[in-house]
């Protein structure tokens, strides 16, 4: 079991990049009225067949031929469902995959969101070939980071360049603070 939700985001999104995704959209959305914390990760990677989707949520399915399928998704699904939330994977071969987990926001068993800024920063800097659209939303307030905008400005200057990497981290940190006013999810 992961100690924080943001590590599940990292884990699932790593799968997206391994599935050859060019664009991954990550949504973190807290809604106090509905009492939900929704995490949606959408990619345009290679997708999965209905059988494969069934396999990734089953931790005891052992006749797999690759090592791609493991405990990551089953634990994530359990973590969401044990807070009165829901979990779904929609996937189409050749089109992509959408993994949605909804948690009960105020449920006592909900893991903290954790260090989502470090997670998104790690994904962006270490997967320069993948574009990310990251949305962080709390009730009516939100901010969006689109790496395509960054790349347009940067040209051939890579994200791994220390100053650029620091800028991205600060961009994430400051905008997140603006949205949640320092509240911990």
């Amino acid at each position: 079991m992961m100690p924080e939700i943001s590590l599940n985001v990292l884990d699932v999104t790593e799968n997206s990049t391994r599935a050859g995704a060019k664009l991954v959209s990550i949504l973190i959305q807290a809604d106090h009225q509905a009492d939900t914390l929704t995490i949606r990760i959408e990619d345009d990677g290679c997708g999965m067949t209905p059988e494969q989707v069934e396999q990734v949520v089953d931790p005891f399915f052992t006749t797999r031929t690759t090592r791609k399928v493991g405990l990551g998704i089953p634990f994530y699904k359990y973590a969401a469902e044990s807070t009165g939330g829901s979990f779904s994977i929609r996937s189409q071969v050749g089109k992509g995959t959408v993994v949605t987990a909804a948690f009960g926001l105020s449920h006592i068993d909900r893991m903290p969101l954790g260090d989502i800024t470090s997670t998104i920063h790690t994904l962006i800097v270490y997967h320069p070939e993948t574009d990310f659209v990251y949305t962080y939303q709390i009730d009516e307030r939100s901010f969006v980071l689109d790496t395509r905008e960054f790349k347009e400005i940067l040209g051939d200057v890579p994200f791994s360049e220390p100053e650029v990497s620091r800028y991205i981290f600060e961009y994430l940190t400051e905008n997140k603070n603006e949205v949640d006013q320092g509240a911990v999810l």
Binding site: E149, F150, I153, L154, G155, D156, V157, P158, E161, E163, V164, Y167, E170, Y171, E174, N175, E178
Partner: peptide
Amino acid sequence: MKTLAELKAIREKMQNQVGL
């Protein structure tokens, strides 16, 4: 709040150094 203008400034500064 971070703006994209700051990123442009970094880009301009880096431009000559990259490639080396």
